[in-house]
Amino acid sequence: MLETVFFYAFAALTLAGAILTVTMRSAVHCAIALISSLAGVAGLYLLQHAEFLFAVQIVLYIGGVMVLFLFVIMLVNLDAAARERQFHRHWLAALACLAGTGALVALFLTRGAESFKLGAPAAEAAPGAGNIETLSMLLFREYLVPFELASLLLLVAIVGGVMMAKKRI
């Protein structure tokens, strides 16, 4: 009962945030709407007992990415930039995107109707083996190579960022 209430609350938060992100006028307000949308997704993760994803969602997206977004928005005068011609009134492109996405969703709904059935609930995890322990076992044992490759990708991104930001190394 309580979980259902929370699910609808978080889902409403996510959707309302997403809609407000594209409809608000001020860039800072858009960013805040996006934050509430991300927080709603984090809440949905928590309802699925994916506590680690919940924390990562909040720490990385809200605490990291969105703080830097806000940082940039506040330092750069975006309101003047938003009045430029190339950033608005793209009705044709928007309608094309909408039609394409709608067609995709419709295709999924017609072709994959049988895949929407819910499977049997997964067996309860053994007590003591929490979400994070299981996740780390998987990450560091079975998927070690992809995990390390991802960290290599991040390293490349860091080095690239330093190269671009620093004129003299």
Partner: peptide, 23 residues
């Protein structure tokens, strides 16, 4: 079972209160 993560998540969100107040 993720108490520490919740604390670090909340202190990350706490930054927003300061930036938004400043802006």
């Amino acid at each position: 079972n993720v108490g520490l993560l919740i604390i670090s998540a909340m202190s990350a969100v706490g930054i927003l209160g300061i930036i938004l107040g400043g802006w």
